[in-house]
Design a binder for these strands. Structure first.
Lengths: 127, 127
DNA sequence: CCTAATCTTTCCTGTAGCTGGAGAGTCAAG
DNA sequence: CTTGACTCTCCAGCTACAGGAAAGATTAGG
C-alpha cells in the first residue's frame, strides 16, 4: 500500500500522514527500492486511530500516549481514563470561558443599535 | 514614555507591543535619538483597546478593523456591529462543536470502569 | 565619575499541526 | 513512448506571540 491509499483508508491527507511519520507518531513499516513508503494494515489502523483521537481534540502528545496504551495489551483502563478525564476537564474549562465571552459579547451586540450613527456601545466598552 | 511603561499601562507584555508595531497594528509615534520607541497617550489607548478586543477573542485582523472604526469618528455603528455579530456567530459555532465533543467524551469516561483491567470503552471507540 | 542593574534594541529561533508549492523521480495505462 | 497520476525531499508560511543572545542606553547608588 502506498501512502495515497493508506491516507485515503485512514481518512487523512497525504501530507498529514507524512507529517506523522516525520514526528515519529505513525511510521510506515518500510520503503520500496525507489523510496516509496509502504503502509500495512496495522499502520493504517494506527493512522485512523489517531485521526479519531484528533477529532476528539486530543493533542498530538496525548495521541502518542493513547497510541502506546492502544498498542499495549497489558495496559490498565485507568491510564486511558485518566488521560481522557484530564482532557475532559480542559474542554469544560474552555466551555466556561467561551460561555462567559459569548454572554458579554451578545449583550454588547444587542445593545448596539447598528445604524448609521457613530454611537456604539461595543466600541465604548473596548475603548 | 518608553515601551516598558506603555506596555505596563496597556496591560501587555513588551514583546507583544513590539510585535504589534512590527505588523503595523499599533505603531509608536516616533523614536528617540538612540532608537528607543516613544509611546504617547493615544498609542497607549490603542494598545489597551486591542488588548481588550483580544480578550474578547477577536483576531488580529478583526482588531485592525475595529481599531480603524474606533479611530473613525464618522463611522456607523452598523459596521462595528457587523464585525461583532460575525464573531459572535463563530463563538457560538465553536460552542456547539465543543458541547458535542464534551458529551461524547464524558459518556466514554463514564462508561470506562477505570480499573486494572485492559478493557476500555474509550480505546474501543477510538480503535 | 565609575559601576552595576535595568531597559531597550535587533535578530533568530521555536511553538502546534499542519498546508502549499517547487522540482525531480517513479509508475501504470494506452 | 508519452502522458498523467503518484511520490519523493526540502523549503516556506500560517497564528500570535515567547525566549534568548549580543549589544547599546539609561539610571541609581556610592
Amino acid at each position: 500500500m502506498n501512502i495515497g491509499s493508506a491516507a485515503k483508508a485512514a481518512g487523512l491527507p497525504v501530507k498529514t500522514v507524512r507529517y506523522y511519520a516525520d514526528i515519529g507518531l505513525v511510521e510506515a513499516p518500510d520503503r520500496t527500492q525507489t523510496g516509496y513508503r509502504r503502509y500495512d494494515e496495522a499502520a493504517v489502523r494506527k493512522l485512523a486511530f489517531v485521526r479519531r483521537a484528533r477529532d476528539f481534540g486530543f493533542s498530538i502528545e496525548e495521541c502518542r500516549e493513547l497510541l502506546s496504551l492502544y498498542e499495549d495489551k497489558s495496559r490498565s483502563s485507568a491510564d486511558v481514563r485518566a488521560i481522557a478525564a484530564a482532557h475532559l476537564e480542559e474542554i469544560e474549562e474552555k466551555q466556561r470561558q467561551l460561555a462567559a465571552l459569548r454572554d458579554e459579547l451578545a449583550h454588547l451586540v444587542t445593545a448596539c443599535r447598528g445604524d448609521d450613527r457613530p454611537d456604539c456601545p461595543i466600541l465604548d466598552r473596548l475603548g
